[in-house]
Structure formats: C-alpha cells, structure tokens
C-alpha cells in the first residue's frame, strides 16, 4: 500500500483512495475505541464517526504518522461518546445468542485456535483488564490504550492526544500503576501466567 499516494489522493477528494486507508486501519481504530469505550456497538459507531470526520478533515493532515492522526480522530469520537454517556447514562446490553441468552463473549469474537477452557481463561483475563481500564480516568485510559495496546510510541501518543510529551509520560506511568493495583483485586480470576508474574515481582 502506497500510503502517501493514497493520502494525497484522498486529500483531492478521492473516496476510493480513502476507503483503501479505511480498510487498512479499521481494525486498529475499532480496537482503540473498544478499549476506551468498553462496548462493541459504541466502538463501532465511534469508529465510523472517526473515519467520517477523518475524510472531511483529511486536508488538515500535514504529514507525520497517519496512524497517530487517525487515532486522534477516534479518541475524539470516543470522548464525544463518553461525554454523551455521562449526560445520558444507559445500561449496556450484552449480545444475545440464538436462544436469546446473553453472551459474555460473542462467537465472532472467539479465537478458534483456543480450547473452551483456554477461551474461558482468555475471556476472564480480558474482562478483568477491561474492567480495570473502564475504571481509569478517561485521559489515563486513552494514553494506556494507545501506548500499551496499540503500540504507539510516546511521540505518536502525544500527537494523537494533542498533549505534551511530559504529560503523556506521566499519565502512562500513573495509568500503569493504577491498572496494576486494580488487577491485583482479580488475582483468583487471572490466568496462571499473570499470577506467576505477580509472585516473581
């Protein structure tokens, strides 16, 4: 994929070129939104809004990491959703299976390479981490999602969140410490790998 050429075409109004970029980055943006919002439907909406906003403002992209620039649009979309949720709190609905029972982990999200026990263990770990992420302040959560889950470097995170590098470093350190404290409350739920790491520490 010739990213600079596609971006240049998109800036000229070429929707097909922009959609090629969408297909390349949609998983990353969706995952970011999912970890910040903790809800798949809201994450999908935020991702769609982010891409729409990105297309309308693609001419404002002036170089640098395009992924970081897209991450800024999706974190902004997530912040909009979080503000809306605070104004109008709702009870999240779990996905339902064919019998109408709530599913903790929808089938399309399941990893086919894992045994049922391993899948259950992975689900527990994911739930525990997501729970702790959800309890972080918004600005801490976005930093830790971008740096530790999406793997952006500090400069990219600073670009994405439009914050100074020092602020990013500080928030990331404090977010990691808070997550650690939160996860220690889930020792029995956490898989053996994490308990071993905890024992070593």
């Amino acid at each position: 994929m010739d990213e600079p050429a596609l971006i240049h075409s998109a800036q000229g109004g070429d929707l097909e070129a922009f959609n090629t970029l969408v297909l390349h980055y949609q998983d990353a943006l969706f995952n970011t939104a999912l970890r910040i919002l903790g809800d798949e439907d809201l994450a999908a909406d935020a991702t769609q809004n982010a891409f729409l906003s990105a297309f309308k403002n693609v001419t404002s992209y002036r170089g640098g990491s395009f992924k970081a620039w897209l991450m800024r649009t999706v974190t902004n979309a997530c912040y909009d959703e979080l503000r809306r949720r605070k104004r109008h709190p709702t009870t999240p609905l779990e996905p339902e299976d064919q019998d109408g029972d709530e599913m903790d982990s929808p089938r399309w999200l399941a990893d086919p390479n894992l045994t049922p026990d391993q899948q259950a263990e992975a689900d527990e770990l994911e739930h525990a981490i997501q729970h702790c992420l959800d309890h972080l302040p918004d600005e801490f959560r976005s930093v830790v999602v971008l740096a530790d889950i999406q793997g952006l470097d500090y400069a990219e995170v600073a670009t994405a969140l439009h914050a100074p590098l020092g602020t990013i470093k500080s928030r990331l350190a404090r977010a990691r410490l808070r997550l650690r404290e939160c996860l220690q409350g889930f020792v029995e739920l956490l898989p053996a790998a994490f308990r071993l790491q905890e024992e070593r520490s």
């Binding site: 798949e40 410490l177 905890e198």
Partner: peptide
C-alpha cells in the same frame, strides 16, 4: 509490576472490526 501490567495489556486479543467502515458518497 509495571512490566507485567504492560505485558498483560499487550496480551489483550486484537479484535477484528465487526464490519467494514468504508464510506459511501452519501455518507460523506
């Protein structure tokens, strides 16, 4: 502690987007 926390976050499964988010001319 920080290292193991970062390791746990990196273990989170990477979810595929449930659908394509490509834009149509009408949407845009």
């Amino acid at each position: 502690d920080l290292r193991s926390t970062r390791g746990l976050l990196r273990q989170l499964p990477f979810r595929r987007a449930p659908r394509n988010f490509t834009l149509t001319p009408q949407m845009a």
